[in-house]
């Protein structure tokens, strides 16, 4: 943002966006429509407490607990909610499983719907126009920009999120992890692997 400092060296300046947000916040607070403490609590939740580790726990459990994987397939909203990861916007979740010959990729072409309860806040690229526009039209080129090249015979299925339905990708369990516990597997599950722009990590 350009800051106009030439004759206000010793005084504060607010850029237009900051002033507009402060105006809205004051108006909503003065009208009693929101509590400023609630805003702080929301930011604390999303910046520090909710993040892709929640999703990693879901994935690692799906890899190690067949009954849970089954429940996740049939009703991900309920299965994930039972782990204590509830959606704040009352959205439904669908878990889409990668398997040999099938790779899943999630986008929101309309805006930026994202499974916050399991992945936290979306990365900038997820909300960007190039990703939203290209994930559907040329998913393989998009994946290549993330450094992911899939075998020719692997189909890519793209899921377009909405405010009502959001998706989490369950990546394939890496080879060489037989006998690992869910706790050992969790660190192999990155945020991007649950959006579909990466695979689960390779064990060290």
């Amino acid at each position: 943002m350009p800051h106009d400092h030439h004759d206000h060296e010793d005084h504060s300046q607010l850029d237009d966006m900051t002033a507009r947000v402060m105006a809205l916040e004051k108006l909503m607070t003065d009208k009693g429509l929101v509590d400023p403490a609630a805003l702080d609590a929301i930011l604390d939740t999303y910046e520090t407490r909710v993040g892709p580790r929640n999703g990693a726990r879901v994935v690692a459990r799906a890899w190690t607990d067949p009954a849970f994987a089954e429940a996740l397939t049939h009703d991900a909203t309920t299965a994930i909610h039972a782990m204590g990861f509830g959606g704040r916007q009352g959205e439904h979740l669908t878990a889409v499983f990668n398997k040999p010959g099938l790779h899943n990729l999630v986008v929101c072409t309309l805006c930026s719907c994202y499974p916050w309860s399991v992945l936290g806040l979306p990365p900038v690229w997820y909300k960007s126009m190039p990703y939203r526009a290209r994930a559907v039209s040329e998913p393989r080129a998009v994946l290549a920009e993330f450094g992911l090249t899939l075998p020719e015979d692997t189909a890519v299925r793209v899921w377009d999120s909405t405010a009502e339905m959001r998706y989490i990708v369950i990546p394939q369990r890496p080879e060489g992890t037989d006998g690992w516990t869910a706790e050992q597997l969790e660190p192999l599950v990155s945020r991007d692997s649950m959006i579909g722009t990466a695979l689960a990590g390779v064990p060290a």
Binding site: E47, W125, P130, V142
Partner: peptide, 13 residues
């Protein structure tokens, strides 16, 4: 096609 911003960086939200 426009490049996707920061696909491999850990950028803040």
């Amino acid at each position: 096609a426009a490049a996707i911003p920061g696909p491999r960086d850990a950028t803040p939200h």
